[in-house]
Design a binder for these strands. Structure first.
Length: 274
DNA sequence: CCAATTGTTATTTA
DNA sequence: ATAAATAACAATTG
């Protein structure tokens, strides 16, 4: 489920625990989500430490604990963070729980494609600092995008947008949204886009990130329906999974097919092959 | 039982 | 050797 803005949404949930001490760490040892770290180290370092602050980048979150401990969480396909009241009993898929006096911070992930990382040291770990420049940062340059599209020239543009090394945080729905707004067919080969299309694509990447962060990051996906009216150019997002969904701009039925290994939705009237 | 799921990575193919 | 396509991972839901 989680892409850029949803990751930020979940990170903010745990910020309820900023400044408070972790009294106890509950975890499901041996579960796949701990494949990147040593749960014993996590328990030892986090217990008694204070949760200081956190940030999100791409589809990852980094939590800073006192004592030089860094906790990284990736939500995978089905992960989420929750806050539960004191006395809450963790359930089957609550793989990691930081117990604080006034709340429990819960990482839940049924499919376990997500994962936890732990680093101890003065500086943030490489798996964090090596994340590609954010799409809304100055590092997301037109020339960088153009160059990347050339290098991945024989792959469909939809597949290329999902590559985290250049489009950090973009997932399946954001990629479809970006292509729909840019009026580019998802099966177009990345190397076939002309300079004007590359420029538009980059612009729409930025716009979708900005809009997603403005709307979703604040309140999750339970948006009041009327909010949709305030978003310039209605989201394809709302129509892509509904049966008989229609293009919000042209009213023509949307198409759904697998492109680059993922189910992809586009508006045939707007996004054409050529 | 079959197919589907908003992610990543290892393996195979070209 | 490089890049693209495919399989695999795991759990749940329809």
């Amino acid at each position: 489920m989680p892409e850029l803005a949803e990751v930020e949404f979940f990170r903010k949930r745990w910020s309820a625990g900023h400044g408070a001490k972790v009294l106890e760490v509950l975890l499901h040892q041996g579960k796949k989500v701990f494949r990147h770290c040593d749960p014993a180290v996590l328990r030892r370092k986090a217990t008694g430490a204070r949760l200081l602050r956190s940030e999100a980048a791409a589809k990852q979150m980094l939590f800073r604990l006192s004592g030089g401990t860094w906790l990284g969480i990736h939500l995978g396909m089905s992960g989420e963070l929750r806050v539960e009241p004191p006395g809450y009993t963790p359930t089957q898929h609550d793989h990691l729980v930081l117990v604080q006096r006034d709340r429990l911070l819960v990482f839940n992930d049924p499919r376990m494609f997500g994962g936890v990382r732990v680093h101890v040291g003065k500086n943030a770990p490489a798996w964090w600092t090596k994340i590609a420049p954010a799409i809304l940062s100055d590092g997301f340059t037109l020339s960088g995008v153009a160059e990347f599209l050339k290098r991945r020239g024989r792959a469909p543009i939809k597949a290329v947008l999902l590559m985290q090394e250049r489009f950090p945080g973009v997932g399946n729905w954001m990629a479809d949204e970006i292509l729909w707004r840019a009026a580019i067919h998802p099966r177009r080969l990345a190397g076939s886009l002309d300079p004007a299309e590359v420029r538009t694509l980059r612009q729409e990447c930025r716009r979708v990130c900005r809009l997603a962060l403005q709307t979703i990051a604040g309140r999750g996906r339970d948006l009041p329906p009327d909010l949709n009216q305030h978003i310039p150019q209605t989201w394809l997002f709302w129509h892509r999974w509904e049966d008989g969904g229609r293009c919000p701009r042209t009213g023509v039925p949307l198409r759904r097919e697998e492109v680059g290994g993922r189910t992809t939705c586009w508006s045939p009237s707007r996004q054409k092959l050529r």
